[in-house]
Design a protein around this nucleic acid. Structure first.
Lengths: 86, 86, 86, 86
DNA sequence: TCGCCTGATAGTTGCC
DNA sequence: GGCAACTATCAGGCGA
C-alpha cells in the first residue's frame, strides 16, 4: 500500500504500538530529567551554586560540540584539497 | 561553612562527581531522544504521517494531565467533605 | 483595563499596528536571508565550496558564543567569591 | 582554475570578504529578530496575548502564500489558453 | 527535483 | 507571576 492506514483500519494495531513505544521512551526521558533536577537540588542544599554548576555543564557540552565542528571543518578542508583516503 | 567549596579546594571531588552524574544522565536522555526520533523515522518509512503521530502523543499527554487535574479536584472536594480516609 | 481588547473593539487599531510592524520586520528579515543566499550562490559560481564557507561562519559564531559563556561563568565565580564591585 | 583558492593563498582576501559580508547580514538579521521580540514584549506588557498575536501573523503569512499560489494557478490557466501578453 | 537533515523559531516547563 | 533555560516543531539548504 502506498499510504499506511489509508486502506482500512488494519494499521490501528501498528499505530498503537508506535504511540506506546514513544510514550514509554518519553516517560523514561522525563524520569531522567527529574533525576537531574534532584541532583541539582541536593547540590544546592549542600551549599553549591546551581547556576554555576549548570553553566559548567553547558560549557563542557559546548566544548565538545566545538571540537566536533573543528573536526568537521578539517575533514572538509582535507576533502577540498583531495588529501583524503576515500 | 556558608558556601561549599569556598573555604578550600576540598570540594573539587564533589563538584566533579556532581558534574559527571549530570552529564551521564543527560547522555542517556539524549540517547532516548534519539530512540524516539528513530521510531518516528521508521514509521515515516512505513508511510505514516509523523506530524499526525506526534500530535496524537501530545493530545494523549494533555488528556492524561487533565485527568490528573480532575482527580485532584475530586480529592479536594472529598477532603472538604471529610470523606477521605487520611 | 485588565485585559487589552476585551472591553470592546477599541484596541483593533493597536493590534493592527502591532501585526503590521512585526510583518514589516519579518519581511526585512526574509530579505536579508535572501541576500545571504545570494552571496553564497555568487561564491559558489566563483568556485568556492559553500559548505566550507558556511562551516567557517558557524564556527566563528560558536567561538563568539563560547567566549560569552566563559565571561559569564567568570562573572559567576567572581560573584560567588564576593569579589565584584556591586 | 577548477577550485578557487586551491592554487594559492591569493583568494584569502576574497574569502575574508565573503565571510564578513555574511556575518554583517546575519548580525542585522539577529537585530531584527530582537526588534520583533521587543514588540511582542511590549504588547504583552499592554495586556495582549503574545501567543495569539503570533498565530495571527502566521495565519496571515499562510493566507498570503495561498493567494500567491492561486495567482500562479490562474496564470497557468491563462497561459494555457493563450490569453497572456507575454 | 525530492527527501533528508540541520539550523532557526516557537512553546513549555522550571526557577526565582 | 515573570523570566530564563530547554525542548519540540518547522522551514530552508544540501545531496542524491
Amino acid at each position: 500500500m502506498s499510504k499506511a492506514g489509508v486502506s482500512g483500519g488494519v494499521a490501528a494495531g501498528q499505530i498503537k504500538s508506535i504511540i506506546e513505544r514513544v510514550e514509554r521512551l518519553e516517560e523514561e526521558k522525563t524520569a531522567l530529567a527529574g533525576d537531574i533536577r534532584e541532583i541539582y537540588a541536593e547540590a544546592k542544599s549542600n551549599g553549591y551554586d546551581v547556576k554555576v554548576l549548570r553553566q559548567i555543564v553547558r560549557i563542557r557540552k559546548q566544548d565538545a560540540a566545538e571540537r566536533q565542528e573543528q573536526e568537521a571543518i578539517l575533514d572538509l578542508y582535507l576533502h577540498a584539497l583531495g588529501m583524503t583516503s576515500d
